[in-house]
Design a protein around this nucleic acid. Structure first.
Lengths: 239, 239
DNA sequence: CAGTGGTCTAGACCACTGA
DNA sequence: CAGTGGTCTAGACCACTGA
């Protein structure tokens, strides 16, 4: 049994999706909907507010509620956990550690995401470089810096076959994250580790995570082009 | 003056972000919050429900409300309008049309997003190929198929200097969209149009949009690597 | 089986803003 | 200045689920 506000919400959503209500059209006012569904105003308000929260409807005082003109803005991006994704394809996942170093991390060389216009990790930190592998084949090159101020206990962790990312997710959940997505050619070192040609196109994910105000980690992952991609969605789930 | 439910919401959010409430911790029950804030249950419910909707809090009956363990899943991806973005940098935007063709669009060659495991556009369609330019320099190569069944009036539109994407956004807003992001090397034709070397790394956005059940357009945009990137976010806005 | 959240009511006063 | 949404109250009954 779905709730009444959920039913009102999906009724209106269907009318929009079906083309019955076009972008720019005005929705019935709350009083009208109360009458139609025989319910209180809080209930219709909850239904339409939910539609407004997802961007499908725009509410304006005095004027009414309108079907919004969707923009390409604010799609929902799915960034799956690499180990999970590989295992979901019935392949064997492994992280191979190439380099590990404790450093003050002031050299910008250690900062895998300096393209962000935000402060780098300061203070002592752990640098890890490694390769994500599926069925023994490398598919992503990862360079990561972890703040030892925020996560001192990571110094005792081993990162093979588990990745530092998985370890962090288990031990130090973050509350905020920023990801930058771009494309670049693999440099010589990356190409060697990934067994591809230098300059071969790769997808780059550069991510920083925080716990409150405290910076946890910055990571740059290089995926072999065309063997990896990301998906983003707007609107109701499509089969 | 912010509303009370908004204040309760941000109070709790700050306690989570500040580390006062850690992931897995239990929030005060609604009755407790009603008492603390001297308000009705609907108000605290609205505040905590909002936190639950953004994924920061998880609610369980009988057990209570808990600070969630954030996953890398479901970040919000910002896909800006190209023309707007270029003009925002005080550059001149222009779309240069290279090719235009009306076709039955059954050849998979016309389907710029065949990597999606979903049905291609069927029936008559318009194919456009062009280049997005900033200050006279090309930065993105675009191949697009528009359904003439869904948008017959597009046959009369001109696409230079306005892009078919802008035209569509003005005339036929969509309700659902799917975007796939990958990296690839430019082929010869693309490289020539973008004035780059064949094989140079590029970021690829392949997008399909629908209006309800009806397929509107499929587009594949190739951005010159490192000169373009996308951003995604999770958590509260960071300055 | 008792504690917790899910939902809903029937009001109320107010803030904004477009006609 | 009147119509619309924004917010809030003080209740109520219920569904779920963990102790």
């Amino acid at each position: 049994m779905t709730s009444l506000h959920e039913r009102i919400r999906s009724d209106i959503e269907n009318r929009i999706m079906g083309g019955d209500l076009a972008p720019g059209d005005r929705l019935p006012i709350e009083a009208k909907l109360m009458e139609q569904y025989g319910c209180s105003r809080m209930t219709v308000n909850k239904a339409i507010s939910a539609l407004a929260a997802t961007g499908l409807v725009e509410r304006r005082r005095k004027a009414g509620s309108f079907v919004a003109r969707p923009q390409a803005h604010a799609m929902v991006l799915d960034i799956p956990d690499l180990a999970e994704e590989v295992r979901g394809r019935d392949q064997e996942y492994r992280f191979r550690l190439i380099h590990r170093e404790t450093a003050p991390a002031e050299a910008s060389d250690l900062q895998p995401t300096h393209q962000f216009g935000i402060a780098p990790i300061t203070g002592p930190s752990l640098l890890t470089i490694g390769v994500h592998m599926a069925d023994g084949r490398p598919f992503a090159y990862e360079r990561r810096v972890v703040s030892l101020t925020a996560v001192p206990e990571i110094e005792d962790a081993a990162f093979d076959p588990e990745s530092p990312g998985s370890w962090l997710l288990q031990h130090v959940p973050w509350t905020e994250a920023e990801t930058n997505i771009s494309a670049t050619g693999a440099n010589e070192r990356e190409a060697r580790s990934l067994k591809i040609t230098p300059g071969a196109p790769c997808l780059v994910l550069a991510r920083r995570t925080w716990r409150g105000e405290e910076h946890i980690t910055a990571v740059r992952q290089l995926f072999i082009g065309e063997s990896y991609s990301l998906d983003a969605r707007f609107g109701s789930a499509r089969k």
